[in-house]
Measured scan of single mutants.
Amino acid sequence: VCKLPGCTKRYTDPSSLRKHVKTVH
């Protein structure tokens, strides 16, 4: 789960979560 406020994205893969945080936030 993306911990950033207002973000409801969920990821099972930690690397995918990191990529999400880098690109989306």
Rank of each mutant, 00 (worst) to 15 (best):
H25K: 05
K3E: 09
D13V: 01
C7P: 04
Y11W: 01
H25A: 06
S15C: 12
K9S: 09
V21R: 01
C2M: 05
H25R: 01
Y11G: 11
D13P: 01
K19G: 07
S15E: 15
S15L: 09
D13E: 09
C7S: 05
T12C: 08
K9C: 12
P14F: 02
D13N: 10
D13Q: 03
R18I: 13
S16Y: 05
Y11I: 05
S16W: 01
R18W: 07
H20T: 01
V24T: 05
H25M: 03
C2R: 00
T8S: 11
C7M: 03
K22Q: 14
V21K: 00
G6S: 06
H25Q: 08
Y11E: 14
S15V: 07
K22C: 11
H20N: 08
Y11T: 07
H20W: 01
T8N: 14
C2I: 03
T8E: 11
S16N: 15
P14I: 13
R10V: 12
D13T: 01
C7Q: 04
G6E: 09
R18H: 15
V21E: 15
V24C: 12
K22A: 14
T12I: 03
L4R: 00
H20P: 03
R10P: 12
T12E: 13
V21W: 02
L17C: 04
R18D: 15
V21I: 03
V24F: 08
L4N: 14
C7D: 10
L4S: 12
P5F: 08
L4F: 15
D13A: 00
C7F: 00
Y11P: 07
R10A: 14
K3W: 10
T8A: 12
H20C: 02
D13L: 02
H20K: 00
K3A: 01
L17W: 03
S16T: 07
V24Y: 11
V1Y: 06
S15G: 11
Y11L: 10
K9P: 02
G6I: 00
T23R: 02
G6R: 00
T23Y: 03
P5V: 03
D13W: 05
R10Q: 14
T12N: 13
K19E: 15
H20Y: 03
H20L: 00
D13R: 00
L17A: 09
G6C: 03
V1L: 05
V24S: 10
L4V: 14
V21L: 04
V24M: 09
L4P: 00
K9N: 13
P5N: 10
H25G: 07
R10T: 14
T12G: 09
H20Q: 02
K9M: 10
P14C: 07
L4E: 15
S16R: 04
T23V: 11
V1T: 08
C2D: 13
R10M: 08
S16A: 14
C2V: 04
K22F: 09
G6L: 01
H20I: 00
C2W: 02
P5K: 04
S15K: 10
K19S: 13
K19A: 14
V21N: 05
C7E: 08
R18M: 13
P14V: 09
P14M: 14
T8R: 06
V1R: 00
S15F: 08
K22V: 11
C2F: 05
V1N: 06
K19D: 15
K3L: 03
K9L: 02
H20V: 04
T12H: 07
K22G: 11
R10L: 09
S16V: 08
V24A: 12
K9T: 07
S15H: 11
C2G: 06
K9Y: 15
G6V: 02
L17F: 04
T23N: 07
P5G: 04
C2Q: 05
T23G: 04
L4Q: 13
Y11F: 15
T23A: 09
C2T: 01
T23E: 15
D13I: 02
L4K: 02
K3Q: 05
R10Y: 05
K3M: 09
T12W: 02
V24H: 11
R18S: 14
H20G: 04
R18L: 12
K3F: 05
P5T: 11
L17T: 06
K19W: 12
T23S: 10
K9R: 06
H20S: 04
T12A: 12
K22R: 10
P5E: 13
T23D: 14
C2P: 05
D13C: 02
L4Y: 15
R18A: 15
V1C: 03
P5L: 05
K22W: 08
K9G: 09
L4A: 06
T8C: 10
K19P: 11
Y11H: 10
P14G: 07
Y11M: 12
G6A: 02
K9D: 10
C2K: 03
R10F: 05
C7L: 02
V1D: 07
P14T: 09
T8H: 07
T8M: 11
L17E: 12
P5Y: 05
K3P: 07
K22N: 13
P5A: 04
C7W: 01
T12F: 03
V24K: 08
S16K: 11
P14W: 02
K9Q: 05
H25P: 09
S16I: 09
T8I: 01
C7H: 01
T23I: 04
H25V: 03
H25Y: 01
K3T: 07
R10D: 13
T23P: 06
C7I: 00
P14H: 04
C7A: 04
